[in-house]
Design a protein around this nucleic acid. Sequence first.
DNA 1: CGGAAAAAAGCACGAGCGTTTAGAAAGAGC
DNA 2: GCTCTTTCTAAACGCTCGTGCTTTTTTCCG
Lengths: 199, 199
Amino acid sequence: MRKGELTHQAILERAIQLASRVGLQGLSIGGLAEELQLSKSGLFAHFRSKTSLQVEILEAATALFTERVIRPALTQPRGEPRVRALFENWLTWERELVPEGGCIFVAAATELDDAPGPARDRLVQTQRDWLDCLAQAARIAVAEGHFHKDVDVEQFAHDENALLLGFHHSARLLKEPRAETWARRAFDALLRAARPQGS
Amino acid sequence: MRKGELTHQAILERAIQLASRVGLQGLSIGGLAEELQLSKSGLFAHFRSKTSLQVEILEAATALFTERVIRPALTQPRGEPRVRALFENWLTWERELVPEGGCIFVAAATELDDAPGPARDRLVQTQRDWLDCLAQAARIAVAEGHFHKDVDVEQFAHDENALLLGFHHSARLLKEPRAETWARRAFDALLRAARPQGS
DNA sequence: CGGAAAAAAGCACGAGCGTTTAGAAAGAGC
DNA sequence: GCTCTTTCTAAACGCTCGTGCTTTTTTCCG
């Protein structure tokens, strides 16, 4: 019972790293088992199918993301500082993972967007939660008077997310060194436009 | 000689549609052959390997993209109208292809970002050309006085591209109906910020 | 220590993959 | 109509994949 849960967690940990590089579909049971010095059937003692493994990967990654990106931001003061913290924490999350394959959610988004099933459903939920989180932070910023009254918080969340996607894309595909600078500058412009006086 | 080139082109056409949905790696020779009512070995008479097929797919898709998105924009007046046309044409391109799998370049970006080889090189080139095209259009807008003198045209191109990626993501993964509205509004804000007077 | 329970290994399966080879069908030029 | 070239097929290859079944090893508890 003890040992089992330990390896279960070890499998998920390694699987997240691997899937970030090769994708959830590209992830092979055999390859994963080999990296863990385990047999393929040893894996199937912990996950009844590849699909259920994919769902568990997304769940574990979501928990990690919440802990590393969202929770630290909640310690920041309500309003604009928290909005900014969410953005910065995401950048850090991605930057630290870039050599490993970058944000697993972005990596999974493309390959799952046309593959209905439990894995896709789980990913959509995580993405929706993230956008809601961004929108809620912006909503608070409006309430606190940091943002102008008629800022569309959902639009703001969408824009912010688009910048993060753009960063991921430029950093990973084009290996563009200015990607982070560009993303941060664009976000500053977004904040500036949202503030009451306009600068 | 005649018949050969015809099927060659038919293969590429169908392959682009298919790869937009399942990706360049996910594209299977057998499946593609079946859809074309051709044998697998019939395909290999036209492409010596899957990799070279992928490269040809990207080249054909790039040509199509140039014709549908870039060339029509060049008929627009220099400056801001042309910048706007590039954005709108891309939206149209994506919108028309969404049921088929959306923009193939976005679909391919994630799966190739960690897979060195000719296919990746080709994709990077197309992406760089596109960003250069956006930047050049912005540069002209600056020269024409439509944009403020010290607008960073590369930053502008990066921001514009991020918005398009965000649209693709929202439309395909989340099936968000407001995605297009959001993308257009965000782009309007981008233009507004770039203009001399500031509004 | 010993026995029950859990964890992992070994092995085999059917299917699909990209690819090769040899040969049949189709088309063009004389 | 015959021939030569182009275009396509049929069959098989070696490989990897996800998965199931049986057996062995390890772990845990009294």
